[in-house]
Amino acid sequence: MLKVDNLVVSYGGIEALKGISLEVPDGEIVTIIGANGAGKSTLLRSIIGLVKTKSGSIKYNEKELTGLNSQAIVAQGISLVPEGRRVFPNLSVLENLQIGAYMRKDSAGIQKDIEAIYEKFPRLQERNWQMAGTLSGGEQQMLAVGRAMMSRPKLLLMDEPSLGLAPLIIKNIFTIIQQLNKEGITVLLIEQNANMALKVAHRAYVLETGNITMTGTGKELLENPQIAAAYLGRKKHKKN
């Protein structure tokens, strides 16, 4: 579905991505794990058109995305749940959902989708008219996911959805991710919480300072001792 090939992105002469290649097959959850500054967010930002790429290609269903603006990319059926949620604090919960459907014209369909999202997240319905800035972190994350769903994406990009949330809510979010995936949405998930991410992912990549250093199924990486030491907080010699 999504194919990134030899992608190079640089900010002011410093290469944040040094020619990475990866693939997100239709219907899967693919995760990219890595430390702060590894280039994870840069990757998502270049897929959605917020960052100019230097070279390489990003193909979505065989169509080149590099050089397109965000508007055109979103129109292809890609949606972003940004890092730190970034719901519009000065818009109500309902308006945040409506703005997610900004490019759609079918008001009946939009209404139906809003109801579906309220069904999935009853807390959002309770807060329908509240300004999004007054919601708790977990509620904002649900709103950010709901907002992204409103454009009816086929590919959902998620940037650190667990960041700054309580463990119970993180579990919740990951359940939602799996649920969305079962409903047919392909997910590209970026996480520092490698443990949770690898558990739900079909396929995983490890990104280190702009290079992909390892790849495999979620399960493989979860069992890999190097990964365990570097990202899962387990020591290699923990066994005894």
Binding site: L50, S70, V74, P82, R86, I99, M103
Partner: peptide, 8 residues
């Protein structure tokens, strides 16, 4: 940025 990502 996020407004852009919404397709605005």
């Amino acid at each position: 940025e996020i407004a852009r990502v919404m397709g605005i």
